[in-house]
Design a protein around this nucleic acid. Structure first.
Lengths: 204, 204
DNA sequence: TGTTTACCTATCCGAAAGGATAGGAGTACC
DNA sequence: GGTACTCCTATCCTTTCGGATAGGTAAACA
């Protein structure tokens, strides 16, 4: 089984690579950035066949969310690519699978499971831990309603009330109402503070 | 050599633990949270001697920055404790060492170096990669001046211009000036966006 | 049925933020 | 001496926020 694992943290990457080698993977290549991973796949394809599986870290220079995955799939549509991440939300995992990933591996997964997961994905089956995917996100967000969550997302993007209103097809006053209630709910002093709280809790 | 490694990501933690075992560490215990790590150290101390080294992940439930380290050192002043992190800034590393950590291990460190680093720390020597520590942070902050950086810190705390002015003993207009220039420098649309950019880049 | 909840709109007001423009003081450098 | 840069202050103005208050619709629920 030929693998490529891309992660910007040398220690983590090499440790996981060692784990996989110990688990019976013949060849485990590594890369530290997305461009490096792309180059490695390019080289592997030219010398025949590509990798059985490529593991891409979600938070890595060049990835830019799932844009990096899309790039890889555009360049090598036939290459099996999985996303591995420590912080990504369940929604990101679902999006990754929709974008053509063969799997999603949370770093919170037990080490003994990874060999099986990798073997599965390398053989062409989609892998994603069910209990991770089924996690709903709204509950983590301090009792915010759907609309308030949407508005908070706008705040985090640095948008004004007017812009958020246009985007959500609402009146500006309504957005102001949501901003007021949501800042109170999460205990923020103002919109900036609210955005920071959301970011710190990893809500977006 | 008896080790305890605490990291909330099972995969990463177990992979590093395996790496250390392969490198000659007799006993490598693991924990997934700070409380679990505290309990493990407590148990080890009672059954005689404690660990030769405890590795604590900087971003782990219960850590709260360096507060977790302080907690551990308060409870077990004689225990050698090192911080391991993938995202912490050089300043955080320096603070960790000042707070009594025996070392700081960036996850970007090459895997082959960790055995040496761990052996060193377990024997009582302080370890921290020099090239990581010497990194200055101002340059990362998009050419902001000292005052602008201070104001940006205020923005990240959700403070108003008036509050920042009072705190820095300036006129409010001056703060407004700094806010305007710094938002332009870092390419932000407004104060909220500026705060988010600062947070995303880990400037504070 | 009445009640609760989420959601949307409205008006009015003061406070805060954002921007333009114009200076002055101090330091560093050539 | 001149130049450049940071830093501080000022006035004037417009836009945006934040808050109070009031009311309406629709769905969920007992």
């Amino acid at each position: 089984m030929r693998l490529l694992i891309a992660d910007d943290h040398d220690l983590v990457r090499d440790a996981i690579a060692a784990l996989l080698r110990a688990g019976g993977c013949d060849e485990v290549a590594v890369a530290g950035t997305l461009p490096a991973a792309l180059a490695a796949v390019q080289a592997a394809v030219q010398s025949g066949g590509g990798y059985d599986l490529v593991l891409l870290d979600y938070d890595m220079p060049g990835m830019d969310g799932l844009e990096g995955l899309a790039q890889m799939k555009r360049a090598f549509p036939a290459q099996a690519v999985a996303i591995i991440s420590g912080v990504a939300r369940p929604a990101a995992a679902r999006e990754a699978l929709e974008a053509g990933a063969i799997g999603f591996v949370p770093k919170a997964m037990p080490a003994r499971s990874i060999i099986g997961a990798v073997t599965l994905m390398a053989s062409g089956s989609v892998f994603a831990p069910f209990d991770f995917l089924k996690q709903e996100e709204p509950p983590v967000q301090g009792g915010l309603t759907a609309r308030e969550t949407e508005v908070l997302r706008g705040l985090c993007a640095g948008r004004t009330n007017k812009e958020i209103a246009r985007e959500m097809d609402l009146q500006e006053v309504t957005v102001k109402l949501h901003v007021r209630t949501l800042t109170r709910k999460i205990g923020a002093r103002n919109r900036t503070h609210a955005a920071m709280i959301a970011r710190e809790n990893g809500w977006f």
